[in-house]
Amino acid sequence: MKTKKKYNIPVFIILMLGAVAMVFPFVWMILSSFKTTTDIYTYPPKWLPSTFNWKNYKAVFDMIPFGRYYINSIYTSLMQTFIQIALSIFGAYAIVFLDFPGRRFLVNLIRSTMFVPMVVTLIPMYLIMNGLQDTYAGIILPQVFSAFTIFLITSFFDSIPKDLCDSAKLDGCGYFRIMFNVVIPNAKSAISTASMFAFLGHWKSYTWPLIITNKEKYRTLPIGMKYLVAESSKEYQVMMAAAVMAILPVLVLFVIFEKQLVKSITLTGMKS
């Protein structure tokens, strides 16, 4: 018999204080994005903006080609995600459902890539991609492979009953048909979670786009925002407006997909 215990109030209060510290920066960001310069430099500090206006948001677009950065980020993140997920599905399907020579070796090879962070191979990668500087391909291609995604999808595929594939095989399906018609539809929600995960990672990607782009035209959002810091010279309210716009799509995805995101984070943690 489980007895209903009383709430642990002291612990709750500590956690609430912690939660305030976690959320405060975001509240501050949103409120400040509407402030005027004088609001920011008054003492004692003001919590609420004196008037709600969208001037700072407009200022972001005046200072830097923010719209262009935004489109670049969306395009490159989507492409990276798409290629990465396709590669991972292919790899995971072969690992889980097919018997072929060298399977173990390949799994270990893919796993070993996790121990080579991209910063280590940055210079050769830059030289390999030298001809693709300031192109979308240059931004996208080096970031399309992730052992994590492969193993994440592998663990999803593992939970699909093998009988399903066997009976499709009895019906005369080839291995590609089984992948497209049986395995992928059965792992649809898992694949969309993995895609979400990959997209969030690409959306904040920093070091590689910083190196491979020189022209403003090809900068992604994080790189553009780095330069905004210098450009706006302490006009924090404008920086906050830019931050709000960069965070917005992520927060929307987070609210919709939180449960799946949490699940796949813990899954990767448990499996490794």
Partner: peptide, 21 residues
């Protein structure tokens, strides 16, 4: 969720907030 929220936010965007902080 509140403890998890900063994880998903792009690092450059949250850096901007903290530069001000």
């Amino acid at each position: 969720s509140t403890y998890f929220a900063p994880v998903v936010v792009p690092v450059v965007a949250s850096s901007l907030i903290w530069i001000w902080f």
